[in-house]
């Protein structure tokens, strides 16, 4: 499982830039960023190399941060690859709250991030069908919340 940071932001001009600048100044490297927005506010979800330190950096800079556990899987690079993954979760009755993906610069596979209600069970279900669940060490080196 991977530690994901969620930052609550009001929809104000420049706020996202301030957020990323704070991380940059703190020497935090992001691997993925996804914004869920409503008319008035948004939640910015971040995967980064040192999540624990990133929380401290952001709180110091005045942002509200919460940490949640997500699972990352390498989705096979073929038609129906993602569908297989989702169906196996569905078969287990696991609900996907949201998902987003990015491409590993080294590899050929896409990495999909899932927020599910029971990440431990989801991981089992995925491993049962041979899907590779990426650990935090696999995603980035130090400051690990290992799977």
């Amino acid at each position: 499982m991977i530690k994901q940071l969620s930052v609550f932001l009001e929809n104000n001009p420049g706020r996202l830039a301030q957020l990323t600048r704070a991380l940059g100044d703190g020497g935090i490297n992001m691997r993925a960023l996804m914004v869920a927005d409503t008319a008035e506010y948004g939640v910015v979800r971040i995967l980064c190399d040192e999540p624990d330190r990133a929380v401290a950096v952001l709180e110091e800079a005045g942002f509200g941060v919460s940490v949640s556990q997500v699972i990352a899987v390498e989705v096979p690079d073929r038609p129906g690859g993602l569908a297989d993954v989702l169906e196996s979760l569905d078969a287990e009755g696991l609900n996907v709250e949201y998902a987003y993906c990015f491409v590993e610069p080294k590899g050929t596979a896409a990495v999909d991030i899932f927020r599910v209600d029971d990440p431990a069970r989801a991981q089992q279900a995925l491993e049962a069908i041979g899907v590779q669940v990426v650990s935090a060490t696999g995603l980035y080196a130090p400051d690990v919340a290992s799977a």
Binding site: F8, Y41, V43, G64, E97, Y98
Partner: peptide
């Protein structure tokens, strides 16, 4: 103000 300790990952929780 949303509480600093609120788990605001999910939009539906905020809503």
């Amino acid at each position: 103000e949303v509480g600093a300790d609120f788990a605001f990952d999910e939009i539906k929780a905020l809503e």
